[in-house]
Write a protein that binds this DNA or RNA. Structure first.
Ligand code: MN
Ligand code: MN
Ligand code: MN
Ligand code: MN
Lengths: 247, 247
DNA sequence: TCTATTTGTTAGATTCATCTACCAATGGAG
DNA sequence: CTCCATTGGTAGATGAATCTAACAAATAGA
């Protein structure tokens, strides 16, 4: 990461310092070494030199042993990082329904590398999902419906029946274990929970990817499939959890 | 980043090497220093020691001057990184409609830090958007509709009229420049293009955030607003681009 | 077989981010 | 005014990731 260090000397770590300073000034009117160290989980011996670097870059004004002040440039940069953080955290927490902890952590890891273009598109998505009535409907439905895909009983009884029939009319749904060697399919759903689901996702078994069954062991247990050009093997219970349509 | 170096010695850079090796073996049946260096944009003098590290970690089998082979452990890890890459790139490109280049770049920067939970939720989203008929409909609508929010003429004439009326019935839409000092609003849309939009997004002016107009200069030009606890100033044309509902 | 080209290795340097272990300044409390 | 507790600063070390430049090995031509 941050391979663009030549053009942009503000590293991820420095951006995190800026964000921390920004928030501390906002919340307690001042920022000092001790609090920054605590907030970032580092020792004060690491913060001092970082402040020196930020000062040299013109992003903060730092006189030894005094409170840290953001320059206009630094404030702009800090707000930009914080904005990205907020946007991503909102997406993870409120759209994707992640746990607050994971949303915060993922957001803070990604905020530094998000492109302007991605920011722009996320905002468009939010406008659609949270302003357009149709988008709001969609978000509602997604929230109510996403359980269906994971064997967790759906609250709305009609949810499953409302969706499935339409699908099965056009495209026959089956699991990978229903395919014969030589047949191909496109993944539509990944069922299964816990370790099985985890392993499938780690292997890149997602909706939309195409797979081809290459070989099935006599007992039907390891099933070798080709996925994105690479061969992998699935246990029977893993294969059964993956729904596909024939292609 | 990668502050979790103690528990997990496989850094982002090493993961990228693994991913590169994985793809080269897939596509050309072998991986060697030269090609890896080229693919990753580094010099061969950087790759050799990295291969030594990966070998020590048991992720590849590397005998000097011979082709590089992934161990089962390394292959698993590589596939996991690649899976994350694919998932994010798909999201950026096909859902958010980003340019292929930016989608690829953002995905490759983020793939290392994405949590398992985020993976899981992304997959649920894809299942909804690409399997459920309702999800598919609404993805369609989003694609057609997202233009509306950005002053780009919409292809479907009825798109705007289909959405707006319903909104205005319940919630009065106005721009920030219509607010009086002391009044508050919640952002619903960020219009405007180019530099104006960019600056608004950099400052964290997104849908859903609450703003309060604190002060308006005589000429109406700088408008000071409070946003997430911090005061910022907007030009008149920036303020005019931000749609809000009163709160 | 001998040489030229390609490919990979090594050593040494740089930059960043962090640590630890001291040391220094500051500001109350008495 | 002195002393101690809090706070911040410095030096030196570590480890990751990279570079450059010189070198070595392997391969391919002639
Ligand atoms: Mn961060
Ligand atoms: Mn952050
Ligand atoms: Mn990457
Ligand atoms: Mn990648």
């Amino acid at each position: 990461m941050n391979s663009a260090r030549k053009e942009n000397p503000v590293t991820d770590a420095l951006e995190d310092y800026l964000e921390t300073i920004y928030l501390q000034i906002r919340d307690q009117k001042f920022a000092r070494i001790k609090d920054i160290a605590k907030a970032r989980g580092v020792k004060s011996g690491s913060v001092s030199p970082a402040m020196k670097r930020l000062d040299e870059l013109g992003l903060i004004k730092y006189v030894k042993r005094e409170y840290i002040v953001l320059t206009p440039e630094g404030e702009k940069r800090a707000r930009r990082v914080f904005a990205r953080h907020q946007l991503l955290e909102h997406f993870f927490k409120d759209i994707l329904n992640m746990s607050p902890g994971a949303a915060q952590k993922d957001a803070c890891a990604m905020e530094h590398n998000l492109s302007d273009e991605a920011m722009d598109r996320f905002v468009r998505l939010f406008e659609f999902l949270e302003v357009c009535p149709e988008g709001r409907d969609l978000l509602e439905k997604f929230r109510g419906c996403s359980r269906v895909h994971h064997d967790i009983p759906c609250m709305k009884e009609d949810c499953k029946s409302a969706h499935r029939p339409e699908i099965s009319e056009e495209e026959q749904q089956m699991s990978i274990s229903d395919l014969q060697p030589g047949q191909s399919g496109r993944v539509t759903q990944v069922n299964g929970q816990g370790a099985i689901r985890q392993r499938l996702l780690d292997m890149g078994v997602f909706p939309r990817v195409e797979i081809e069954v290459e070989r099935v062991a006599p007992a039907g247990d390891p099933i070798w499939i080709k996925l994105q050009g690479y061969q992998i093997s699935l246990r029977q219970n893993e294969a059964a959890a993956v729904m596909v349509t024939r292609v």
